[in-house]
Amino acid sequence: MSKSPRISFEFFPPQGLDASFRLWETVQALAPMQPEFVSVTYGAGGTTRKLTHEAVGTIHRHYGLNVAAHLTCVDASKAETMEIVDAYYEAGVREIVALRGDAPKGASHWEKHPEGFASSVELVGAIAKTGKFKVRVGAYPERHPDSASTAADVEFLKRKIDAGATSAITQFFFEADTFFRFRDACVKAGIEAAIIPGILPITSWEGTKKFAARCGTQVPARLDEAFTRALRDGRQELFALAQCTQLCDRLIEGGVEDLHFYTLNRPDLTREVVRALGVQTQPVLENVA
Rank of each mutant, 00 (worst) to 15 (best):
G101V: 13
P35C: 13
M33F: 15
G106F: 08
A44S: 12
I84V: 15
I84P: 01
A107S: 07
K50M: 11
E95D: 08
H113F: 14
K50R: 05
A98G: 10
Y88N: 08
A29I: 01
P35G: 01
E111F: 08
E111T: 12
S77E: 10
P35N: 09
V56K: 09
S39R: 02
N66V: 04
V74N: 05
G92H: 04
A107Y: 09
G16I: 03
P114G: 09
G64D: 05
K78W: 11
A69S: 14
W110I: 13
G46D: 11
V56Q: 10
V74F: 01
G116S: 06
L51I: 01
E83M: 04
G92D: 10
I84Q: 07
T58E: 15
H62C: 07
S108D: 14
G101F: 06
V93Q: 06
A69N: 04
R22W: 05
C73T: 15
V40A: 04
T26P: 06
E25R: 12
A68W: 04
Y88V: 05
V93C: 15
V27R: 00
A79N: 02
G43W: 13
L30Y: 04
D75A: 11
S108C: 00
A68V: 07
E111L: 13
T47P: 00
E36R: 10
P14L: 07
P104F: 14
A98Y: 13
H113A: 06
E95K: 09
R61I: 02
I84E: 12
K105F: 10
R100Q: 02
G57I: 00
A79Y: 05
A44M: 14
S77I: 10
P32F: 06
L71F: 13
A87I: 01
G45N: 12
E25H: 11
L23D: 02
Y63D: 10
I59Y: 02
K50T: 15
E36H: 07
P35F: 09
G45V: 09
A44N: 09
T81M: 13
M82V: 14
E54C: 00
A68M: 15
F37Y: 14
A19K: 00
T72Y: 02
W110T: 12
A69D: 06
G45I: 07
T41M: 09
Y42I: 03
F117H: 01
A68S: 15
H109I: 03
I59M: 02
E90P: 00
G43P: 11
A44C: 05
P13I: 14
K50E: 15
L23A: 01
A69W: 10
W24A: 05
T48M: 00
I96V: 15
T47Y: 02
V97T: 08
K50C: 08
A31F: 06
G57R: 08
T26D: 01
Q28N: 01
L99M: 02
C73N: 10
E95P: 01
Y88H: 14
S39W: 11
F11S: 00
S20W: 14
I96H: 05
T81V: 15
S77T: 14
G45C: 14
Q28H: 03
P104C: 08
A79E: 15
A19L: 12
K112S: 12
